[in-house]
C-alpha cells in the first residue's frame, strides 16, 4: 500500500492531512498557512491564518479583521506533530517558502519566488527537501532576466529623458511588491515620486510593518498637472487607460513585467516602454533553485507547467503538474484594486 503524500492537492488548496492544515487555500478552511500577501495566495474567509511577520499589515489591509498568527524566517510551528518553518522566497516583502516536515519527510512549498536579490525583501534561500512544490510562471527558456541594475539604469534614464521632454513618467507594476521594488531603485535625485492610491495604501501597510520605503506622495483630486510634470508616477496596471491618467498628460508610459520580454506581448500592452522586470524566477533561476533543493519530486503549480515538467522529466526528475488556482495575481489584483479606486 502506498502511503498518503504529506501534501496533497484537493479542491480547497494544498492540504496536509497529517497536520490538518492548508497551504494557500483558495476556498475557506479552518487552518491556513499563507506564503505571501498576493490575493491569489491569501484569500478571505479562513478561520485561522499563519503568515510571515512582514505580511501582517498587508493581510490586515487586504482581508480586514482576521485571526492571524505570524512568525519570522527560520521560526517553526508544530501542528499535530508536523513542523512548519518559513524560509525567504525573495518574491515580495514577507513572502515565505513553507517547509513542512513530518517523520523525517520534508516538503517545501515555494509560493512565488525569484532568485535575484532585489534589495527590498530577504533574498531567496534554497531549502533541501524530498518534494518541492514550485511555481513556474516563466518556465520557458525564452525568459531570462537581465540583472535588475541594468533594468533600473534603463528606467532612470527613461525618466530623465522624459523630464527633458517635459513629460511625466508613468510606470505600471503590481501594487504589492513590484511597485515598492521600483520605488526603492529609482534615482531619487531626479524628482518626486507620486503614487496611485492603491499603491500608497500598500506602501503605508508595509511601513507600518517596519519596512523602510522612500517618501511618496499620494495622488488626490487636488494634485495638479503642474506639480506632476517631470516627476514619476507609479500606478497599478488597472489604472492604465482610465481617465485617472489624464492628469499626467503629457506622459510617457512604461510597463514593468516579465512578460515584456516578448515583443508581441509588449506591443499588445501598447506601452511606450516595456521594462523586463519580474518578481518571479526566470528559466535559469527555476532550474538552479530546483537543483539546489536536491529534491526527487517536483510539483508544478502554475505557469508553463506542461513544458517545464516535460523538461524536468528529461533531466531526471519526477516532475508533475498540479492544478491550482494560483497565477492570476494580476487579475485578482485588478478586481481588488478596482474596488479601491
Amino acid at each position: 500500500m502506498s502511503k498518503k503524500p504529506l501534501l496533497e492537492f484537493n479542491q480547497n488548496g494544498i492540504y496536509c492531512a497529517a497536520g490538518d492544515f492548508y497551504i494557500d487555500p483558495w476556498r475557506p478552511v479552518n487552518d491556513a498557512v499563507i506564503s505571501h500577501g498576493h490575493s491569489d495566495h491569501a484569500k478571505w474567509g479562513h478561520k485561522k491564518y499563519l503568515a510571515h511577520t512582514l505580511s501582517r499589515e498587508i493581510l490586515y489591509y487586504r482581508l480586514g479583521e482576521i485571526n492571524l498568527e505570524t512568525m519570522d524566517y527560520g521560526e517553526s510551528r508544530v501542528k499535530n506533530g508536523v513542523k512548519i518553518t518559513f524560509y525567504p522566497a525573495g518574491h515580495i516583502p514577507g513572502s515565505a517558502q513553507i517547509r513542512v516536515e513530518y517523520k523525517g519527510e520534508i516538503w517545501v512549498f515555494s509560493g512565488d519566488y525569484k532568485t535575484e536579490d532585489d534589495g527590498l525583501c530577504a533574498p531567496f534561500e534554497p531549502v533541501k527537501c524530498h518534494s518541492f512544490i514550485s511555481e513556474c510562471t516563466f518556465g520557458m527558456p525564452v525568459y531570462k532576466w537581465a540583472p535588475q541594475k541594468e533594468i533600473f539604469d534603463g528606467i532612470n534614464s527613461w525618466w530623465s529623458q522624459n523630464q527633458e521632454e517635459g513629460k511625466t513618467s508613468v510606470l505600471a507594476g503590481y501594487s504589492l511588491g513590484k511597485a515598492q521594488r521600483i520605488l526603492q531603485n529609482l534615482d531619487m535625485n531626479l524628482g518626486k515620486v507620486y503614487t496611485h492610491g492603491v499603491i500608497q495604501n500598500s506602501n503605508e501597510a508595509l511601513i507600518r510593518n517596519g519596512i523602510n520605503l522612500y517618501e511618496t506622495t499620494r495622488i488626490t483630486p487636488e494634485t495638479t498637472k503642474e506639480e506632476l510634470k517631470g516627476n514619476m508616477v507609479i500606478c497599478p496596471p488597472s489604472a492604465v487607460g482610465t481617465p485617472w491618467m489624464r492628469k499626467m498628460l503629457p506622459y510617457s508610459f512604461g510597463y514593468c513585467s516579465g512578460w515584456m520580454a516578448i515583443r508581441g506581448a509588449k506591443k499588445r500592452r501598447a506601452a511606450d516602454r516595456g521594462f523586463v522586470l519580474s518578481d518571479h524566477a526566470d528559466w535559469d533561476g527555476l532550474i538552479s533553485s530546483i537543483k539546489a533543493t536536491e529534491c526527487d519530486t517536483v510539483y508544478l503549480t502554475h505557469g508553463s507547467t506542461a513544458s517545464f515538467s516535460r523538461y524536468l522529466q528529461g533531466i531526471g526528475y519526477d516532475a508533475r503538474e498540479s492544478k491550482t488556482l494560483y497565477g492570476n495575481e494580476e487579475e485578482a489584483d485588478l478586481e481588488k484594486e478596482g474596488s479601491n479606486l
Binding site: 520557458m140 520580454a261 508581441g264 513544458s307
Partner: peptide
C-alpha cells in the same frame, strides 16, 4: 514550444 510562445523565429532564436 518556445516558438509557439514567441511567434517569431528570429526573436525565438535570439532569446535562446
Amino acid at each position: 514550444e518556445s516558438y509557439d510562445v514567441v511567434g517569431d523565429l528570429a526573436e525565438t532564436l535570439s532569446l535562446l
